[in-house]
Amino acid sequence: MKRRIPLIICFAIGILMIIQFMIPHPISREFGSTVNKWYIVLAAFALVLAIGNLIRHHGTKIRRKKTNWPYSIVTLTSMVAMSIIGFAGGVDPKSLYQTIYLNVLAPLGSTMFALLAYYMASAAYRSFRARSLEATLLLAAAFIVMIGFMPFGQYISPRLPAFAEWIMKVPNMASQRGIMFGVAFGSIATALKIILGIERSWLGGKK
């Protein structure tokens, strides 16, 4: 029972969602949107557990005075403070909650994102070596595209921008499509295995 009931629920909801895609009738739409709402509710409940895990992790660090424990205080207090600000002060566009979003979360996020520029440079430097034919092709394609799409590309050869675009539109497109077909069958098979109960590692293997 401990396995069968979850498996039946998983099977039923999976099949229902597939059928739901085929039926345009309002009953089916209603069902689809209700289940989507339930999903959101379940995610919110799971967030309680997740935040509980975060509090426990940092709480333990502080109590046992593990390395870097003072930073855990930063996480916990800022989380509590932000929640209080949101619940007490509201979430209007002019509220403190939104101001903090714009002036703390947004710059932190954009700066982490901007680190990518540096990492792309160091990753390319370290790994773009013409070790084999395949690696050389990768290197050459990256080069041509990088030069071709820049204003100075045309100075090297007036044909270069068009060549760079060709690489994007022909070989790049072909490989992406080929990968996508494989991905499609891989994920459909995975999803079916889950629904049909063939793959059940989430229940702890085959027993």
């Binding site: 520029a117 440079a121 390319a124 430097y125 370290r126 070596r129 013409a130 080069f143 990088m146 204003p151």
Partner: peptide, 23 residues
């Protein structure tokens, strides 16, 4: 775009340097 152009040049240059060394 000027920044981007010279950054691209920089990246291209270091990749070439790396490959010369590797060679």
């Amino acid at each position: 775009m000027n920044s981007q152009s010279i950054v691209h040049l920089l990246i291209i240059t270091i990749i070439i340097l790396g490959n010369i060394g590797f060679f």
